[in-house]
């Protein structure tokens, strides 16, 4: 399979994602420029973390209108796999490929720490290499990661199993103290209702080798490889 990692002006983690895919997972992956509409036959498109277009107006609001996003929206509507990490998650919400929005952290502070998430639904292309209920230790680093969605939408998402990752404590409980940013229902990652678009605030690409403090992030990438394999 082939991966495309988009570089927007202000992207920070595009090369980290490329490193994870190429060097650690030995995948065929290349960078896609925000002005190009050609996705170069990618089977999965990754929107990386960072501060695209300076996060002006709202995080992800400007990136949504870049030429590459027209192709990404088409690709997603045709069922192509799209993974949005951190700023990429914000862009997917702004582009209406995912429901809800990401807002200022409850604490008003930028948070940079290691947290634990629970895999809530392992029957998806993004989580199939993990078990439901499995705990993953991943880094987060964001100022605007508090997930919100309208109550009726949230109910539908919970019913359909669109909440793929939730912030939990060491016992796997989604408690308020385990919720780093105040996200509704401790939500850390969600999929669309056709399960081909996934956004998450934690950074799997920063957790792919023991030297980086852990390699639980590999589970997410392996799932995608497995689902297309």
């Amino acid at each position: 399979m082939k991966w495309g990692v988009v570089t927007f002006p202000g992207s920070l983690d595009d090369r980290d994602a490329l490193f994870a895919l190429r060097d650690v997972l030995e995948q065929d992956a290349e960078l896609l420029w925000h002005k190009d509409r050609d996705l170069r036959n990618a089977d999965c498109v990754v929107l990386p973390g960072g501060f695209s277009y300076g996060d002006y107006l709202r995080c992800g609001a400007m990136a949504r209108f870049s030429p590459v996003m027209e192709s990404v929206v088409d690709f997603a509507r045709r069922g192509g796999l799209v993974l949005g990490i951190c700023n990429g998650f914000q862009i997917l919400c702004e582009a209406h490929l995912l429901p809800g929005a990401l807002t200022r952290n409850r604490s008003l502070s930028f948070i940079c720490e290691r947290i634990i998430v629970k895999v809530e639904n392992s029957q998806t292309p993004f989580t199939c290499a993990a078990d439901s209920g499995e705990l993953l230790r991943l880094p987060i680093k964001h100022g605007e990661g508090r997930y919100v969605a309208p109550a009726d939408e949230l109910r539908r998402m919970e019913d359909r199993g669109q909440i793929l990752l939730r912030y939990v404590d060491q016992n796997g409980e989604a408690t308020d103290s385990a919720n780093p940013n105040g996200s509704t229902h401790c939500i850390a990652g969600v999929a669309n209702d056709t399960f081909n678009v996934f956004g998450l605030m934690p950074h799997p690409e920063h957790a792919v080798e023991p030297m980086l403090g852990g390699d639980d992030g590999i589970r997410i990438f392996r799932s995608i490889i497995q689902s297309l394999g």
Binding site: T103, R104, N105, S107, L108, R146, V148, G182
Partner: peptide
């Protein structure tokens, strides 16, 4: 911010 959406800046 919409009513009902937590506004931590407003609260601070």
């Amino acid at each position: 911010p919409k009513r009902g959406v937590l506004d931590p800046q407003g609260r601070a």
